[in-house]
Amino acid sequence: MEALIQLGIFALLLGLGFFFGRRAEAKHYQSIFAREDELRQIVVSTDRFPPIEFTNHNAQLVSGNVVISVDYFKRVSAGLRALVGGRIRSYETLLDRARREALLRMQEQARAAGADAIINTKFETSRISGNSNKGVASIEVLAYGTALSPKNKR
């Protein structure tokens, strides 16, 4: 009986994780697509030096970071993957969302600073998992770069 209850709790958590995780993911992607269109004018590049047309601009550090958590379903799915090997697809979408969200936040900061472009963009990730492997892992993605804004606003 006890085993049945544990199995039920497991299935419930799995179902909740799947349902809410999937819904959150779909909503998040919608919002990412919309904001990427909106911020398309703020060019993000990985060039280390400003292009010739930006040499007269002000430079300023901008960054965007996001912390994102794994849901139960993804975690179990990844745990199974750990046994058999292969692409952990459920984590791929999660990290894709995190990176794009971090870029968008950086772009928003650049827009607030009146910048036209961001150069030298870099990513950092770090894992926040408490003090043991048992907690649900969450990761931080940080995007940072140099925003270039015109000196004389007209």
Partner: peptide, 29 residues
């Protein structure tokens, strides 16, 4: 090569897959 005027639209489905995760899950499980 000139600096881009705006960010390109990235095609979806390169870094991620649109396959239903349930299918993968049940096969593995």
């Amino acid at each position: 090569m000139s600096f881009a005027k705006q960010n390109p639209k990235i095609p979806e489905g390169i870094n991620t897959s649109t396959e239903n995760p349930l299918k993968e899950f049940f096969i593995m499980f």
